[in-house]
Design a protein around this nucleic acid. Structure first.
Lengths: 120, 120
DNA sequence: TCCATAAGTAGTAATGATTACTGTTTACAC
DNA sequence: GTGTAAACAGTAATCATTACTACTTATGGA
């Protein structure tokens, strides 16, 4: 992968974002630095950064794909009322049932659903 | 929700499916019973069945939405080579960090990624 | 330093899964 | 039975994402 200021900007924006932005949200934020960047460029770089393991995808309640630049081990809580995604940093362990079945686990994604503190 | 043979057929097909079919896969299977059912009807009923809690959505590696009729508590393993989804039935526990943060958990979805037995 | 070349880009067109719309049919309560 | 609102088939529209094209740029070797 060759270096490009567009890809650097996409990654930087994603790492600075506390929310879990969609491609078009990232597009708008990157445009503040690179006004003529193309939406296709954002999509292409998000795909490459994902393939290379620099970013991940987060499950959400809408149809758009949400991205995440924070790779530290954590899980997500999705409020079914306000649809906000909360990061929860805690230890998790892989059930032995998986390795018993011959499945070689490399990573995991866990999402909990319910009502958040302010929606209760 | 009023009863309809189309919705009954969609739910029956999904409960009989061992894989995790997409809307168009379900459409093809339901067509064997109801040849002139509309794809829009399948989508509408899948949405209703999801809203009413009869079925759930499974994360997958493609862009289409995959559905699941098996509501017994289980997790999923997604092979990054063959992209097959394996059901793993085992106990899971909710980390205390969530309730400590005031998050009221109602359900959970966990996906593990890696290589399955035959792809290793 | 200067090319060669292949990866990357901007802008735009195309794709395709999903949703919306419209006139007709059907379940169900009275 | 009849009214009515939900559900339907068929089709059109939406819109997030991907593909395409001509141009630009990073990078490695001469």
């Amino acid at each position: 992968m060759r270096s490009s200021k567009q890809r650097d900007a996409v990654l930087q924006v994603l790492r600075e974002s506390c929310d879990h932005p969609t491609a078009d949200m990232i597009f708008e934020r990157v445009r503040e630095q690179i006004p003529n960047i193309s939406l296709g460029t954002v999509y292409r770089n998000l795909g490459q950064l994902k393939d290379e393991g620099f970013i991940t995808i987060v499950e959400s309640s809408d149809t758009k794909v949400h991205y995440e630049g924070n790779l530290t081990d954590h899980i997500h809580f999705l409020c079914k009322s306000c649809h906000n995604i909360t990061d929860v940093f805690c230890e998790t362990q892989v059930p032995t049932a998986l390795t018993d079945m011959g499945l070689q686990v490399e990573s995991a994604k866990t999402v909990y659903y319910g009502l958040c503190n302010s929606c209760r």
